[in-house]
Structure formats: C-alpha cells, structure tokens
Simulated assay, not measured.
Amino acid sequence: MIFSLNELVHWLGLTIFEIWINLVSLTIFTVLLALKLDDNYFLGHTGWWIVFSPLFVADGLNTYFCAIIFIRMHMEGMIKTAILRALWSLILLLLIFVFKYLLCKKLSGQSPLEYSEVLSPIFILLQLIAVRACQLH
C-alpha cells in the first residue's frame, strides 16, 4: 500500500520541504554507509559520526525551518495552531535525533546500551504517529 503525498503530510505533520530535506540526507547517508562498510574506500577507517553527519545536518535544518514556520504563524495570529505544530515537530525531531545519537554511539562502541533501548525512541514515535493518524480520520 503506497500512501499519497497528502496522507504523508497529514500523518507525519511534515511539509513537503522537510520531507525533501530528509530524503536528500538519507541518500547521502546511504552512499556514505556503503563507503564505510566497504573497507577498500576512503571511509573505511573513519568513525560512524562522519557517516551519520548528513542526518544530523538534516535535523538541524528541519529544526530551523520549524522555528521559521512557528514565528510566521505566530505573527499571522494563528497562535494555537502554531504552538501545536511546533510542539509536534519538536517532539518528532527530538525522538528521531535521540535515536540517531544513540545508534551512532552504539555502533561506535561508546555505549553499553542494548539495541532495544536504542530503538525505544522509534517505538514511542510510531505510537504517536498511530494516535495522530487515528485523530485525523
């Protein structure tokens, strides 16, 4: 089942620009991951932080974009909508950032956490998206 773009925008609470930023960063991350896993290339001996850096940059750009949207909506008088959108976006970005950070620490060997503990922000995020999807229909 393929979701339409409108359904993704409503369920995730992201704009098309934010989705585009995430897709571009995921593409760059995938290329860097392939180079990291193939030890013959230049990323074979670098750390996992370099591989995950496009994802962290995308989180920063999305946070900046959400702050701009919050300010513009607040200036236009849509205060309640602005606060709800900013709250949802910040929770979403925070959970995704915490997951990426914990995963990067786990892969680097800097954290004794189990993978179930590393994936816990994703489980919370999926529950929040399910609740949001039920509220929209």
Rank of each mutant, 00 (worst) to 15 (best):
E7T: 13
L5A: 14
L92D: 12
N22L: 13
F65G: 02
I16M: 14
L37S: 03
V57P: 04
K105H: 14
W49V: 11
A58D: 06
S120K: 09
S108W: 04
V57G: 03
L35F: 13
F70H: 04
T63Y: 14
W11R: 07
L95N: 03
S4E: 13
L61C: 12
I91E: 07
W49A: 10
K80H: 07
L136N: 01
L94V: 12
S89Q: 08
N40Q: 11
L8K: 14
G44H: 02
I91C: 15
F65C: 01
I79E: 00
R85T: 10
T63M: 15
F3Q: 02
H10P: 08
S4Q: 10
H74N: 01
L95V: 01
F52C: 10
S111C: 02
L5G: 12
I69K: 15
N62V: 14
L102V: 00
H74Y: 05
L43Q: 09
V31W: 10
M78S: 04
Q110F: 09
F56A: 03
T30H: 04
I124C: 01
I2S: 01
N62T: 13
F97K: 01
D39L: 15
M75P: 00
D39P: 12
G44A: 08
M73W: 14
Y41F: 15
Q127I: 14
E18F: 10
F65E: 05
I69S: 12
H137M: 14
H10A: 15
V131H: 01
G47Y: 00
L136R: 01
M75S: 08
W49F: 08
H45F: 09
L55Q: 12
A58M: 06
Y101P: 09
I91R: 02
V98G: 02
F52G: 09
K36P: 05
Q135E: 11
I69F: 09
I21Y: 02
F3K: 06
L5K: 11
F42T: 07
V98M: 09
D38R: 15
